[in-house]
Write a protein that binds this DNA or RNA. Sequence first.
DNA 1: TAGATTGTTAATCGATTAACAATC
DNA 2: TAGATTGTTAATCGATTAACAATC
Lengths: 178, 178
Amino acid sequence: MGFTASQIRQDLNCFGGFGQQGYGYPVESLYNEIGHILGLDHTYNAILIGAGNLGKAVAMHMSFEKRGFRLTAIFDNDPGKVGTVIRDISVSDLDSLEQFCLENKTDAAIFCVPKEAAHEIADRLYRAGVKNFWNFSHYDLSVHYDDIIVENVHLNDSLMILCYKISDANYFPDDTSA
Amino acid sequence: MGFTASQIRQDLNCFGGFGQQGYGYPVESLYNEIGHILGLDHTYNAILIGAGNLGKAVAMHMSFEKRGFRLTAIFDNDPGKVGTVIRDISVSDLDSLEQFCLENKTDAAIFCVPKEAAHEIADRLYRAGVKNFWNFSHYDLSVHYDDIIVENVHLNDSLMILCYKISDANYFPDDTSA
DNA sequence: TAGATTGTTAATCGATTAACAATC
DNA sequence: TAGATTGTTAATCGATTAACAATC
């Protein structure tokens, strides 16, 4: 993966000693330990906001259980989508968001809404007590709150990075630094 | 955004001096300069491989023109998808991939295929001369080639990072380092 | 002139790498 | 014992921050 042996040892030792000098690391138990450090053995309840193409893709293709989550509900404000079933979950009306959060422990929100709707819906989630976000919207959620946890997936940034890599390689064809 | 003034100045000066001492930076021309540095004023031709939910979401919601790209074709191996239209582009059969690349300059591939198909299709693209990838597949394309450019969007990693952030915050509630 | 802001050098900080003892 | 591999300290490297001259 391009890491040095030294780096691996340093990084692991931030969390403890997992190997045995002269013998090596026990692969399976180290794998499990890393999963434990990451918190993958939790089961955080997550709700999906937005059942468009992106929301659908995320709902259908992610192995939430392997990553410490469980998808408990899907919300959309489009009446045409409410009631449709995605991966065994019936899409609920966004109006019932607060009620659902009141009745069901909700640890995180997967945020697949257009930029225009982001601020308002984020606000509703925050007031309903949901403060952890997997944010696919092109919107900086951290602007308004300092006690939320956000992991951003900003595809525009990613695409611009690709553009830069291609352009840079074209200008400096022999540069192998990338 | 959490950067210091010093860092902004240092970073900009990697590419030149864009401001005027005592006066400031001209916002609009600096914005354009950054776009130029990133290569956003290019028009790279990109093809989308995979017209599933994720591929559809990417095709429909990304402003390719603003990011230096133009979507020129969409391919899928599912006969049920071939011929359907996504954002004015008719989905082509994956069999015609090589022929298309032969007849149309193709700079990059947006790679929305399942892990199982990734290696084979990446190989076909490489042999057809496509060596720049926006990679949504859970597959490490750089394993086989050292002369390709890859920008990865690995959603599993992102979700595990969120899981870690939540778990870490729960263990150390007063730690503001995140 | 005084205040403000960039360009650029120097100082600081943190992460990566190297080295080596401890251990199998 | 010899070879190999981790744990841990020290050295190196690079990035961030601070400082200040140049300039409006």
